[in-house]
Write a protein that binds this DNA or RNA. Structure first.
Lengths: 204, 204
DNA sequence: CCCACAACTTGCGTGTCACGCACACAATGC
DNA sequence: GCATTGTGTGCGTGACACGCAAGTTGTGGG
């Protein structure tokens, strides 16, 4: 998938980035949402097998490193929509793409809970989710034909979809939601995607 | 409006908070989006007439101080919706409330541009806009009757509206948009608010 | 196969910052 | 008036982001 057409350099770079991100997230989860200040840069770097100086060649703050996995996930939403069949209606395509992306591997609940219920991470978490908007808006515009008159539509819809994903995630984390992520996601998306017939109106 | 029923303490506190926020924003605008690192805490505190230590009794980062005005504005969205007549349909009420809030005093374009086009401020800016979601969701739920089955609807719609406001702001700042904020805002909101008949489908 | 070039990692030094702590002072309630 | 509580301020500390200048490891041409 990404082994070819990528030199050794690029692969190593990707690997270290993921190593640092995973180390940061793991350490943060270990300390819990109330002990984030105890996660030192030195510990993250050591756990990832790099020097502290290298760590901040990749990330300029602990928060950014911890939320990196969500940021990378968000970047894939546009691609996911583009890989849907071209004749599929926009609403169905968006819902299918998002659900597919977020259920192939179901998100790590501990990680999601960490970044969504830690006040110090709120800004970076929002940045991470918002990263879906740009590519997603372009993918939507590509489908609708980039109607210049309704220029705002793709961008606004992308923002709405990103927001729905975020809200669905928060809802999924609430105690008592032990089921899978898919139905919650579908329900949330059906609130903002135009003319989307919810297959399960009862949702939660 | 807030002079009565608020002790001397609370009023002073509010005043210093605004003083620090305004000073931070003004200094940031002076340096421009590329010189944010040159805005020192000491300068903000001095400009606001307080000590640096007091500054960070109110804000724990320069970014937070700079974006404070937008955060305070966002907190008023819920209130704005609640003050709409109860018999008004939800879609019209939301659009009217938001437009009213964002055009009574039209937003300061320099300030908006500062917080929306400075990468280092992205996280805090998103936090500021997102602060509208909680109160707004409650206000929406109060109108729809807090249907427990479609529990997600108010939250998702609030997120969509907040996103639309943010996108509209970004669009308004683009060079060439010299008109007022209202029509752009209306156009953006009509993309996410259900069954909203756009009075001007051509928008931009 | 070897070599020059570019990219990446690392250690060090520096300026800035957030925050705990202790104290002075103003506002509040009885 | 007086005790209490909340707020402003100075100082000290620990951590961090980042520029700089090596050393080290991939990359591509001859």
């Amino acid at each position: 998938m990404n082994d070819d057409a990528m030199g050794l350099r690029a692969r190593n770079k990707q690997a270290t980035r993921e190593a640092i991100g995973n180390a940061a997230l793991r350490l943060a989860i270990d300390q819990g949402p109330h002990g984030l200040a105890l996660v030192r840069v030195h510990d993250i770097a050591t756990a990832a097998g790099v020097s502290p100086r290298t760590y901040n060649n990749y990330f300029s703050s602990r928060e950014e490193a911890i939320c990196a996995f969500q940021a990378d996930q968000s970047k894939r939403v546009g691609q996911a929509l583009r890989s849907r069949p071209a004749d599929e209606p926009l609403d169905e395509a968006v819902i299918a793409a998002v659900i597919e992306l977020y259920t192939d591997p179901e998100p790590d609940k501990a990680g999601l809970r960490m970044i969504m219920s830690t006040p110090e991470l709120e800004g970076e978490a929002l940045k991470a989710f918002t990263m879906a908007e740009g590519p997603l808006a372009e993918a939507i515009a590509a489908r609708t034909g980039t109607e210049s008159g309704r220029d705002l539509f793709p961008t606004v819809m992308a923002a709405a979809v990103a927001g729905a994903i975020r809200v669905a995630g928060r809802h999924w984390l609430e105690p008592g939601n032990t089921g899978s992520f898919a139905p919650i996601l579908r329900h949330a998306l059906s609130c903002v995607v135009p003319a989307a017939p919810p297959a399960d109106p009862q949702g939660q």
